[in-house]
């Protein structure tokens, strides 16, 4: 793996190379070089499989980290490529031409994180949500409790009780 890294470093600008396990490595790449890096890994170094593409929200740094996990079935090594992108203008190049199922990951990230992948087929067709108007729900600043309180409300005609108080009254009515 170190040999591959040396070769890659001559072509691409790579930071933070770390080995997590014997079979798992992570590198951080530049946003602009990602598509050519993935193509290079796939065609030259046999990282032929894209396992997943996911995003991590670093709201405090105003960044999204995209993780592209690739796998080499000859050497049985997984390589995660991390790319940091701006959270405000969240946009990334599409890789649907490299792997067919990347399109689904990109559709999911568009809907749940609001990261755009221009040119990806059916990118706006939605993934799991229907008629969603709020901010993308997987972002860290999306408050699930606030959303639930705003959207759903208790049905009228129902009483709520403090469970401890209610059971005390029910079991020991003579104490009241």
């Amino acid at each position: 793996m170190n040999e591959i890294m040396e070769q890659l470093k001559q072509i691409f600008k790579l930071n933070e190379f770390n080995q997590e396990r014997e079979d798992l490595y992570f590198i951080t790449a530049e946003k602009e070089q990602l598509v050519s890096l993935l193509t290079h890994l796939r065609d030259i170094h046999q990282f032929t499989s894209l396992i997943f593409l996911q995003a991590v929200d670093y709201i405090e740094d105003n960044l999204f980290q995209l993780t592209y996990m690739t796998h080499n079935y000859d050497k049985h090594i997984s390589l995660g490529i991390r790319v940091k992108i701006d959270r405000q203008a969240a946009e990334m190049s599409s890789i649907h031409h490299l792997w067919e199922h990347a399109e689904t990951f990109q559709r999911e990230l568009k809907e749940l994180f609001g990261i755009d992948f221009p040119g990806s087929p059916g990118i706006d067709s939605g993934f799991v949500l229907e008629g969603w108007e709020d901010i993308p729900p997987m972002r860290k600043d999306f408050d699930t409790v606030k959303y639930a309180e705003k959207t759903f409300f208790p049905r009228p005609g129902r009483k709520t009780h403090d469970p401890a108080e209610y059971m005390k009254n029910k079991l020991y009515p003579e104490n009241n």
């Binding site: 396992i51 997943f52 996911q54 995003a55 991590v56 996990m69 067919e100 199922h101 399109e103 689904t104």
Partner: peptide, 17 residues
């Protein structure tokens, strides 16, 4: 956890494939 992502085989099997 900051993020937990699950990748199941159906993700590609049931959609693109």
């Amino acid at each position: 956890p900051r993020r937990i992502a699950v990748r199941g085989p159906s993700y590609s099997n049931a959609i693109s494939l």
